[in-house]
């Protein structure tokens, strides 16, 4: 787990963090019924940051990033994405969602549409891009994730790794400014994990703002500029990857790292 997941050199030259704020979360709280899942979350993400969120199962990592594009509603505090505050105003939500891309653990591709149709659907219907242009964009991103030849197949005919790369391409077709990943590799076999991580690394190299829930600590070391550790719905620790792994501060983090790194 702790070993690097990719063998190639990583170009950090473009991974510049700007001082413009992309996501601002202030004193945010969320409940599922009576259960307090997220407690007083404060987080500022600048443009170009690559943040890895780690933590034990049930600590609220998924819930946190799902709040950022309002797949879940928060009840207290505020979340400001790209200068727009997330409220129950539907217009804002649809706007945010087309600016923020998301990849899920189980891909959530649309099985009744071909790969190409999966990728052109949202640009055509949400962005009102002309069909021809949408297809060109889609092919561009499918080439980028290295599966242009699968464009006319259906998701059911692809391997898990290929499906996840399609899911990434599908999000990219909306030209998002922020990408969220919720354990994109945890449903995949080891060889496939590598191809998906490579795609994500490329994305990072191009300066995409990324928030990524993952247990791939190699990826975190190589790509992240900040690692956030969550436990019981709270951000317990955040630090640069080197510091986080070599010199963890809280007891919970130490325990978690010793479990996940296996020593």
């Amino acid at each position: 787990m702790s070993e690097l997941s990719t063998s190639r050199e990583i170009d950090r030259s473009k991974m510049q963090v700007s001082d413009k704020v992309a996501i601002q979360i202030n004193a945010m709280n969320k409940w599922y019924g009576a259960f307090h899942v997220l407690r007083d979350i404060n987080l500022t993400v600048n443009e170009g940051e690559r943040i890895v969120i780690a933590g034990p199962s049930g600590s609220g990592k998924s819930t946190l990033i799902r709040c950022i594009n309002r797949l879940e509603e928060h009840q207290k505090g505020d979340i400001i994405v790209d200068g727009i505050e997330l409220t129950s105003d539907l217009k804002n939500i649809d706007k945010i969602r087309s600016e923020v891309g998301m990849c899920f653990q189980h891909f959530n591709l649309f099985p009744h549409l071909t790969i190409l149709e999966n990728c052109t659907l949202a640009p055509i219907w949400v962005r009102k891009t002309p069909r021809k242009e949408a297809i060109e964009t889609a092919m561009h991103f499918l080439e980028k994730v290295k599966i242009p030849e699968q464009a006319n197949k259906y998701p059911g005919q692809l391997s898990g790794g290929q499906q996840q790369r399609v899911a990434i391409a599908r999000s990219l077709c909306m030209k998002p400014r922020i990408m969220l990943f919720d354990e994109p590799t945890s449903a995949l076999d080891p060889e496939m994990i590598k191809e998906v991580l490579d795609t994500m690394i490329e994305l990072a190299e191009e300066g995409m703002t990324m928030l990524c829930v993952t247990h791939e600590m190699g990826f975190a070391r190589q790509v992240a500029n900040r690692v956030i550790f969550m436990d019981q719905g709270q951000i317990v620790e955040q630090n640069e990857p080197e510091e986080f792994f070599n010199n963890p501060q809280s007891e919970r983090t130490k325990l978690f790292l010793s479990q996940i790194l296996g020593h």
Binding site: R97, H106, N108, R170, M174
Partner: peptide, 13 residues
């Protein structure tokens, strides 16, 4: 699966 709704939502449909 619920993921189909979320897939659509996350794309801004």
């Amino acid at each position: 699966p619920k993921g189909q709704y979320e897939g659509g939502d996350s794309l801004g449909l």
